[in-house]
Amino acid sequence: MDDKINNHASCSSVPDEGVISVDLSRDIVVDSMTDMTEAIISPNLISTDYSVDNEEDSTKLTLAYEWLYEVPRTIVDKFSNHIKYLDISHNKITNLDPLVHFFHLSSLIADHNPITENCALPPLPKLELLWLNHCKIASLYPWVGKLKESCPNLQYLCLMGNPAAPSYFNGGTFYEYLQYRLFIISQFPLLNHLDDRKVTDDQRTEALRLYKRPFLERLVSPGSRGGISQLMQAPAKWNTVHGKLNSLWSKAKNRNLLI
């Protein structure tokens, strides 16, 4: 699986165009945004070598740089029953629902698409590798919870370049990066690699320690009467909540974590 991480090559951007259909009989992509000349589909998209010697290649499909706004139904019908590795990077895709038909999908590359936290993945129980680098995901909650339900067996996850993945490159502080990383690790027990680094045993232990209880429970003192119900019924006091949050993360600052 590590080879998959090293095999994905980046390319330059393409013009912002749209696609409404793929006509396999004419080998063309129909442009929905302009009246320009129709673009020719690469032969690789409409033919695959199914020989025994090329069995591995027959399970891989790339739709990168095809100006797509969604995965065309013709592609789904032709390839979904056997594809395990799918590359849809560098498109304009915001709807991932058609992927539900890819029953054997284990690797999905969807970098450089305008995917936001409102775009949920359909159930993909066999998915082990997911790349969503440089998309438009601005909030982890409740998006990560939905991702966990759809893809419970993720082992490799990359979210670099998203607003919700703070780093030095997008203005995030070290402790924002730390919170983000530990939260993601706590949600996926099989995760071996997050972004550009392996998940260590120390990180997993700390992630489970910090996130073993629901978020609201950690804002309420263990000995307080009423627990969560008391917090929910009481008048909102941001200063109190803010103080609780600072207290939680100050403990993480003082721990020696191998990041």
Results as ranks from 00 to 15, higher is better:
140 L>D: 14
94 T>R: 14
114 P>M: 10
247 S>L: 03
223 G>V: 11
27 D>K: 09
70 E>F: 12
107 S>G: 03
221 S>R: 08
118 N>K: 15
53 D>P: 05
140 L>E: 14
179 Q>W: 09
167 S>P: 06
242 H>Y: 11
124 L>E: 02
51 S>A: 03
82 H>L: 07
32 S>M: 11
43 P>H: 06
198 K>D: 00
221 S>E: 11
218 R>W: 01
225 R>P: 05
179 Q>P: 09
100 V>Q: 12
1 M>E: 02
101 H>S: 13
212 K>L: 10
73 R>G: 07
245 L>C: 06
142 P>H: 00
218 R>H: 02
143 W>R: 13
141 Y>P: 00
138 A>V: 00
8 H>Y: 11
57 D>G: 10
100 V>A: 13
46 I>F: 07
28 I>Q: 07
114 P>L: 01
103 F>A: 08
104 H>V: 07
103 F>V: 11
54 N>I: 10
9 A>H: 14
244 K>D: 05
190 L>E: 04
16 D>S: 12
155 Q>R: 04
70 E>L: 02
231 L>T: 04
89 S>D: 04
172 G>I: 01
46 I>G: 12
165 A>Y: 06
125 P>M: 02
230 Q>C: 06
234 A>L: 06
157 L>S: 03
215 F>D: 00
76 V>P: 08
258 L>H: 06
7 N>R: 15
41 I>N: 03
132 L>M: 04
216 L>D: 05
166 P>G: 02
75 I>P: 02
152 P>W: 13
106 S>M: 03
79 F>M: 05
201 D>L: 10
106 S>Y: 08
61 L>N: 03
187 Q>F: 11
101 H>R: 15
222 P>Y: 08
177 Y>Q: 00
184 I>L: 10
254 N>W: 05
225 R>A: 03
102 F>R: 01
2 D>E: 15
231 L>N: 05
110 A>V: 04
39 A>T: 00
170 N>C: 06
206 E>R: 15
102 F>E: 06
211 Y>T: 01
81 N>C: 05
107 S>W: 02
29 V>L: 08
